[in-house]
Structures are given as C-alpha cells and as structure tokens.
Write a protein that binds this DNA or RNA. Structure first.
Length: 278
DNA sequence: AAACAGGCCTAAA
DNA sequence: TTTAGGCCTGTT
C-alpha cells in the first residue's frame, strides 16, 4: 500500500479490500454516516473523520501522522482481507458470500464503545440503535468541531458511570439503561479491564463479559469480535442462525473457518441480509 | 391493532 | 439443558 499526504487528507493506493459502504454498513458499527457525496463521516476514538473511495484510492481526512496513529489500526490495514476471503471460500455458499462482501474489513473499534453499543443493540433495529447511541453521545460526549460541523465523541465509561437511570431516560433505551450503567461501572471501577481482556484467551474474555447483566452470548461475541478484535469470535444473531441452518444444517462448527470465523460470519451476515427476500 | 425488531433474564420443567 | 414469557420503545 502506498500513502500520499494531501492537504487535510491522506490517499491510500492499493489498500486492498476497502469498500467504505460495506465496512460502515455491514452491521459492525453505528456512528458512520454517508453524506450526499457518498463520503462517510463519523467519530471514532475521540476524533471525527471523513472517509471516501475515489477511483482506486481511499481518502481519509487528517495527516499522515493521524493515519499512522489511529486509522491504520482502526481499519485493520495490516491484514490482507483478499487472502482471508480466499481462505474462507471453502464451499459454494462461502464463495458467493465472500465475493459479495469483498471490501469488508473488521474495524478495531473502541472497546467500551463496542460493549455499550452492542448492549443497546439487543432486541432492537438498526435505525433505533443509531438514534439511541447518537442521543447518548450528544448528551454526554464531548463536542468536536470538524469541517464546520458539530460532532460528539462517545462518552467514556467513567462519564456514564457517574449517571443515574434518570439521566439516561432521555435517550429512550428502555430496560437497557440498567445494563449500560452496570457495564459502565464495571469498566470505570476497573473490575472489568477491557484492555487486559483483549490480550486474554477468548473463552476467558467471553466469560468475563457475560458476567455483566444484559450481556449474553450474542452481545459478548460481538464485543469480542468488534471491540476486542478477536477475529475467531462467531456471533450468532437471528439472521446468522437462519443462514447457518439453511446452508449447513445442525452439525455446523464455526471452527472450520478458524482463525477467521468472525470474518466468515461478517461475509455470511452481509450476504444473507442483503439478499433476503430475493 | 398486534406483532416484531441484530437478546437477556428468570422461572419452571 | 431447554423453553416460555416478560421487558422499554418505535415502527409497521
């Protein structure tokens, strides 16, 4: 990959699989939105940015230093996703899913943000999930100005731990408020060390997450994959259960996709949802 | 109007 | 170990 620094943004040439619309809309994140020009703007890791594809290049706002400090890791640019796709194309279904999802990458999101976001996601639809998260950020995040617009960071666990259920009432997250506060307290107090968990064994990290009220198998697996970047974690939501049942039956074991079962899940998820009803 | 949406918890077999 | 019902809220 070649990097060219322009004024206000960097250009990536030969970044490999990198389709902003797939990355931001395949269900792994909630805070990147497409503008009229097709460019995505979002706030991540405390800063706002814009990402777009033009020709064969990817443009990310900021300096080369920003890119090295934040975005190279955030977009997981060290992993060759084309090679992963080839590795995962083990049968007819996965060949189709991988081809369909070429351009997807699994981001390294903020760990606390992933935990909190996927707690909110339970039994909810994407528009409402995004609405609740934006409301949480605008109430309790920090303001950042970017290209003349006003944005908000995702509030730190410490900030939310200091709140009450009443403080969360305006975000309209319903019964999840109690779960959010519990998780925030666990993280803020140090009882749950997400940084340490990301270096622990997957099973151990999963158990620690599931010890939180409001975190079951599905949310825990999403946090492992999207927050702790454990690429072998295989979240099973209702769509994935249908997809697995339809294509593999009951004896399926995601270990056939090791060590990238989580990426396999992402291709399957996106392919299944996008082609639903066709 | 009733069901459903990217689950989780509890109680009961 | 598996299953049913309830849960906040918004949308269809």
């Amino acid at each position: 990959m070649r990097l060219i620094e322009h004024t206000g943004e960097v250009e990536l040439i030969g970044a490999g699989d990198f389709d902003p619309s797939l990355i931001f809309e395949c269900g792994q994140c909630f805070r990147w939105n497409a503008g009229e020009d097709g460019a995505y703007t979002g706030v991540a890791l405390g800063r706002a940015a814009r990402v777009r594809r033009e020709g064969g290049s990817i443009f990310i706002s900021g300096t080369a230093a920003d890119f090295e400090d934040v975005w190279r890791g955030y977009f997981d640019l060290e992993l060759d996703y084309e090679s992963v796709r080839n590795q995962l194309s083990v049968d007819t279904f996965m060949k189709k899913a991988c081809a369909y999802g070429a351009g997807i990458r699994i981001m390294r999101q903020d760990k606390w943000e992933a935990l909190c976001s996927f707690i909110i996601s339970q039994c909810n639809n994407i528009p409402r999930i995004k609405k609740i998260i934006e409301s949480l950020c605008s109430l309790y995040g920090d303001r950042v100005v970017f290209e003349g617009g006003d944005y908000c960071t995702f509030p730190a666990a410490e900030r939310i731990a200091a709140l009450s259920e009443g403080d969360l009432a305006p975000i309209r997250c319903g019964y999840r408020a109690e779960y959010i506060l519990g998780a925030a307290n666990a993280v803020a107090s140090g009882a749950l060390d997400l940084e340490a968990l990301s270096r622990a064994a997957q099973g151990e990290a999963r158990s620690a997450l599931k010890a939180l009220r409001g975190v079951g198998d599905k949310v825990a697996d999403c946090v492992l994959l999207y927050g702790l970047h454990m690429l072998d974690s295989f979240p099973l939501d209702v769509w994935m259960k249908r997809a697995v049942a339809a294509n593999y039956g009951s004896g399926f074991d995601p270990a056939v996709f090791a060590p990238y079962a989580g990426i396999a899940q992402q291709y399957m998820f996106h392919y299944t949802r996008s082609t639903a009803g066709q």
